Simulated scan of single mutants.
Amino acid sequence: MSWKIKIAVLTILFWSCKEHRASDTLASYGDYVIEANELMALIEHPNIKILDFRKNNLYNKGHIAKAINISRDDIEDGSYPYSGVMARKSQIEELFSKLGINSDDTVIVYDDSGMCEASRLWWILQNYNFKNIKLLNGGFLSWVDINGETSTENPVIKPTNFKFPANSLMNYYISKEELLEVQKSNVIIIDTRTLDEYSGKHQKHGASKAGRIPNSIHVDWADNIYFNGDKRLKPIEEIRKNYDKLDLKNTDFIILYCHSGVRSAHTTFVLTQLLGFKNVKNYDGSWVEWSYHNDLPVDIDML
């Protein structure tokens, strides 16, 4: 992030915290979350690029002014026989170049699904060592709520030559092969899907079979947001209670998965950035990949 944007953010934080100390602000959610009023103060900065991660038809009906629409397909590697695998580094570089994003820009991403889609992009960029990203708490509706400027026009894009830093961190990533290596060791596996998916009662489209990875524990990702409300993050202490029952230590080796690594990317963000866990990995292929391979073990409840 450029020093000018950092100064602008710190200034906004000071006044935001001064006026709203009883509420959750960017300061309480860490460096990667931005509130709508904070975005409004920064939106004209030339190094701010805004990505709309909603369905294209919703984007066309109205979006944050200057936002560019992207889809999940844009950040997936389509070479696999199943969907959901993280896009290659070169693929994201090509995408960002086409979107007019520079390597020193700050990317603001929003969705309408409780930061779920946005968190998947955050997770990918973290693995490729790009830190200049912020997630809009409350998504598009939070922008509408403060009467932020919206548009139905596509912004004019000037292509760039976006490049990630040379060293990829892959610090929140784990593959199927790596998961198999550590599965029987002292590792905690958390399934972040719905209870019906976890039990095997519901087989979501894209999975080859119903069930779960053996020895996994269920904690629904949606418990961390007001899922049936404005889809904002819950207060951190309330989020923490969702995991207190697991008696976790912040150094425990935790592996997360869901259907295709999207909801579990959200929980990766929650555990690492909000709750301070140090050793968290998101299984990229998740259940879609695991269920595809008939030689891998599966647990399912007797329904």
Rank of each mutant, 00 (worst) to 15 (best):
Y172R: 12
K158G: 00
N154F: 13
M170A: 03
V144I: 15
G114E: 13
L121P: 13
P165K: 02
V144L: 15
D145W: 02
Q126K: 13
C116W: 01
K158S: 14
L141V: 06
V107A: 06
F140Y: 15
G148Q: 06
Y110V: 08
M115S: 14
V156D: 10
N132M: 02
P159W: 04
I108R: 06
K158Q: 13
N132Y: 08
V109H: 07
Y110S: 06
K176D: 08
E181K: 15
S119L: 02
G138H: 07
V107H: 08
D112W: 01
Q126R: 13
N154E: 14
N147H: 14
F130P: 04
E153W: 05
I133E: 02
T152W: 04
G114H: 12
E117I: 01
L135F: 11
I174T: 14
I133F: 07
S142E: 08
E181V: 09
F130G: 03
K134A: 12
V144K: 15
C116S: 10
G138K: 04
Y110T: 06
P165M: 00
E153R: 12
E153A: 14
P165V: 00
S119V: 02
I124Y: 07
N132L: 01
N127R: 05
N147R: 14
I157L: 09
L169W: 03
E153I: 07
S175Q: 06
N137Y: 10
S175F: 09
N186S: 11
F130R: 05
G138R: 04
W123A: 03
L169F: 09
G114P: 13
I174C: 12
L135T: 06
S151D: 10
L136C: 07
N137A: 08
L136A: 06
W143A: 04
L179P: 04
L141D: 15
V156K: 15
M115C: 15
D112F: 01
L141S: 14
N161C: 06
N171Q: 11
T152M: 14
G148W: 05
F140Q: 08
K131F: 13
N186C: 00
E178R: 12
I124W: 08
L125C: 09
D145K: 15
D112I: 04
S142T: 05
K163V: 10
M170D: 10
I157R: 07
I124K: 08
F162V: 05
N132W: 01
V156G: 00
N129W: 03
S168E: 14
L125G: 04
N147E: 14
V182M: 11
E181Q: 15
I124A: 10
M115G: 04
E153H: 12
N137R: 09
L135W: 09
M115K: 10
K134L: 14
D145R: 13
K176W: 10
S168I: 01
P159I: 01
I157N: 05
L169D: 07
T150V: 15
N147G: 04
G148Y: 06
I108S: 06
K134C: 09
I133Q: 02
N127Y: 04
Q183W: 13
G139I: 00
G138C: 08
L135K: 10
Y110A: 05
S175C: 07
A118C: 11
F164L: 02
